[in-house]
Design a binder for these strands. Structure first.
Lengths: 287, 287
DNA sequence: CCGCCATGATTTAAATTCTTTTCATAATTT
DNA sequence: AAATTATGAAAAGAATTTAAATCATGGCGG
């Protein structure tokens, strides 16, 4: 686990002085990362050994180890993210977008409910038919992506971004099928209705959405993607990258479920495709 | 700039001993990040002062500063990536996918041709009509995404994943239009043909693809996305995330070109949409 | 309710380890 | 061969850690 999470989790169990140290580090790690143990101790009004003990308690070998851990995580993650790039110069815009995307992935990983993903993967792997729903530019892309990834594994799946179709399909689904839906906002009322219909008919339902949202409550299994609002509002792409990563994880897990020896087999198949890349097999790889 | 790039750029100007140090750091920074100056010096068969001098030459204050810089960048970036996850346990698969995605973004940023992106953005901003082409699950998604992002800015754009349509559209395009195409492999022969047709008619062409590939050579402006093969073959998603980031950068730059005061305006518009999220405006945000 | 003891937190001081500077020597270039 | 550069040894100087001592806090018996 990363040092920031540890620090926040342990905070309750720390002593007065240690809490002071933790707060300084959390508030200003640009300082913390560059400071010596004496400087840090001075700023926290404690003695150097207290700082060392603090580091040990957090599972680090030593103070310098702590700094390395800190620097490692600070690259992305807790970095302060401005809502807008520094300037509209191409280099700044690029940096801004890349950093935000990396950050979204970092935060996603942090809040990932691995157990839920596993349950979802098991459901998908055993489904007779899968319905993937999502609307609006973003979620419809996720639905398409699910179809794109899962049909290759030999699963039966259809994606739809059409609300009316979604409702009809949900009504037609059977308990041996699975309905999986995506909503970035978590407030897609039609998707909620489709989930409700499906659950009445005992069809397993999976939602990719914000936790504690209407869509999340409507589904049986929720795969929560909770990113700070800033990311959502001003630039949907970094959020979408997080969703894509979830789909990727899900699809990979399903692949492993379906064919236990998939690792070797898949590699051989793909190696073949690459060798013949100039031939007609190209599409299978997916350009 | 990050310390790895600096190290590679400076490599030619370094002395024998310093090159040995650099190579050890580049090959095994898990070691380098945790080692003391004495350990590192020992492994490189040099004296500690040489290591200090090496760090200074790379623009660091001191050895510890060097280690911090290193840890900062090593979180993603040069990290050694196994082609397969450690195990097929959900947590390992998730970690593997997230790390690879972050890595792809890091490498993309590294190799990004900002000037080319800027030229492309200028072309797109001034186009009377834009044709976005891409085939196969991945590139067709990129084309759709381009349409999704650019139509919101008031640009006229159509996306197509149909080879025949692409050829006809390329033939019909005018010099005031722009053709933009994506190919992950860089070997999409039909796309090359479309580019050739367009260039005959003096239509500006932009390619999102591997540099030095047939598609790259066929276009006037190439936005290179060069990721190590491993990423491409076994899991297309991390590569796609890199492509999506390029689209995002491109679209943002175009937005700034079209409306200089876009920053403030866009924010206001979106704030409005968020306030009314429960109403019917939802689709505009793109769920 | 008070005071003593025990526990744990914290600091001071000492020792150790690590890093850097200085200076001398070797290698290389001009 | 002289000058320049690179390197290492030794020493000086920091920084870090360990160990011992002090302080505070809370519990428990009188």
């Amino acid at each position: 686990m990363d040092i920031f999470t540890t620090m926040q989790e342990e905070r309750g169990r720390l002593s007065q002085s240690e809490i002071r140290i933790a707060d300084i580090v959390l508030n200003d790690f640009e300082f913390a990362v560059n400071a010596s143990i004496i400087e840090l101790a001075g700023k926290a009004d404690v003695s150097p050994p207290t700082v060392t003990r603090f580091c040990r308690r957090l599972g680090c070998e030593s103070f310098s180890d702590f700094k390395v851990q800190l620097a490692r995580t600070a690259y992305v993650g807790m970095r302060y993210l401005k809502p807008e790039p520094k300037s509209i110069a191409p280099a700044d815009v690029a940096q801004d977008i890349i950093t935000k995307a990396q950050n979204a992935l970092f935060l996603l990983h942090r809040g990932l409910d691995v157990a839920a993903i596993e349950r979802a993967a098991n459901r998908l792997a055993g489904a007779e038919m899968i319905y993937a729903f999502g609307s609006g530019g973003n979620s419809s892309m996720i639905a398409t992506e699910l179809q794109n990834r899962l049909f290759r594994l030999g699963l039966r799946i259809t994606a739809s971004s059409d609300h009316s179709m979604q409702l009809m399909m949900a009504a037609a689904a059977k308990p041996t099928d699975v309905l999986i839906g995506s909503s970035f906002s978590g407030r897609n009322a039609e998707l909620v209705r489709a989930f409700a219909l499906a659950r009445e008919a005992k069809v397993p339902t999976i939602a990719l959405t914000q936790s504690e949202s209407p869509v999340a409550h409507a589904a049986e299994i929720t795969l929560p993607v909770d990113l700070p609002e800033g990311d959502n509002i001003y630039r949907p792409t970094s959020t979408r990258i997080a969703y894509l990563a979830v789909v990727d994880i899900l699809a990979s897990l399903v692949a492993y479920r379906i064919q236990p020896q998939a690792t070797v087999t898949l590699r051989r198949i793909k190696q073949q495709l690459v060798t013949h890349r100039d031939g007609d097999d190209r599409q299978l790889l997916g350009d």
